[in-house]
């Protein structure tokens, strides 16, 4: 099946944020001189008094958001995922997570699909860093519809959140809208032979992989794990029990990302053979997004291969 390209998830974020701004006066937005790229520009244009450009100073931006949250505001804080998470991490740790403050962080240009700008701008550690912070929720939506639902859920969620969105246009996975719930996997396809777990752009790749496997007579279940934390451990346990093998795919380093989270849960609740698709202890490079995804193995083919390996082990 061909999935039409929809909006980039960053674009969907910007639109959803402006929409939320109309409903909720307590929402304020901070950006680090990237509002034209993170798409907070829509909010800035409509609500100039509630938008604060903090310049190229991410550490301060995170701390300022903490102060605003302490006074009852609901700050959304944006920059490229790499700069926000890495330069703001200690501030997220002490000023936000330790203090238990209600700040929403949205990192755009996540993963390597940002393309030509290269490694310094490609965020491949952000999910691991955000996951590590006690009390943080972490969401990675797959398409424009999921993003809208995730951003609204983040605004409603009582506590700090990290949301990762991407630069390129994303294939539409939820043409009829997405019923996203914090801590709940979304089953996009049922199957009894193996389970493919993914988030972000890898959800579309997992669906493609499931179709390829079906042509070989293998029925794969596909779970969109947009909610990395909290994680839907019940859905994973059921998948392990009912399909006997799990493959996780993410546009992120294998260390500390979705795969690590799923593996820990599966090991604890119902160990089964597992496979992992992601960046294995390496950075990528400059190139066109689709070239990079192919070269670094973030493809439907790699997911299908990994599924075959897991199936062999599970037998």
């Amino acid at each position: 099946m061909t999935r039409p390209l929809g909006l980039a998830t960053r674009e969907a974020y910007g639109l959803a944020l402006a929409e939320l701004g109309r409903e909720r006066p307590e929402i304020v937005v901070l950006d680090g001189d990237l509002s034209k790229s993170t798409m907070t520009k829509y909010f800035a244009k409509e609500f100039p008094d509630r938008f604060f450009n903090m310049g190229i100073a991410e550490a301060n931006m995170v701390g300022v958001a903490a102060g605003l949250a302490r006074c009852g505001k609901v700050p959304f804080v944006s920059s490229f995922a790499a700069f926000l998470m890495c330069k703001g991490f200690d501030q997220m740790r002490v000023s936000v997570a330790y203090a238990g403050l209600n700040v929403k962080f949205v990192g755009s240009h996540g993963g390597i699909s940002i393309g030509e700008d290269g490694v310094s701008q490609q965020s491949v550690e952000d999910v691991a860093l955000a996951r590590a912070l006690p009390g943080f929720a972490v969401f990675v939506p797959a398409d424009e519809h999921a993003t809208r639902a995730v951003v609204r859920a983040a605004a409603d969620h009582p506590g700090p959140c990290y949301v990762r969105v991407g630069r390129p246009k994303a294939p539409v996975v939820y043409p009829d809208g997405c019923d996203f719930r914090v801590g709940r996997a979304i089953q996009l396809r049922d199957g009894g032979d193996v389970t493919l777990v993914a988030n972000g752009l890898m959800v579309a790749a997992a669906l493609d992989a499931a179709e390829a496997l079906a042509r070989e007579g293998v029925e794969a279940r596909v779970l969109d794990m947009a909610s990395v934390k909290p994680l839907d451990e019940d859905a994973l346990e059921a998948a392990a029990r009912e399909t006997g093998g799990i493959v996780v795919a993410e546009e992120h380093l294998l260390a500390g990302g979705l795969g690590s989270a799923v593996a820990m849960s599966v090991a604890r609740r119902r160990p089964v053979p597992m496979g992992f698709v992601g960046l294995d202890d390496t950075y990528a490079e400059s190139g066109r997004p689709e070239e990079l995804m192919a070269k670094y193995g973030l493809t439907a083919e790699r997911i299908a291969e990994e599924a075959r390996r897991v199936l062999a082990l599970a037998r």
Binding site: F52, A59, N60, M61, V62, G63, V64, A65, A66, G67, L68, A69, R70, C71, G72, K73, P75, Q91, S95
Partner: peptide, 10 residues
Amino acid sequence: LSVGVGEALA
């Protein structure tokens, strides 16, 4: 001081 800036902005 950053937290203070946020509180002062609020």
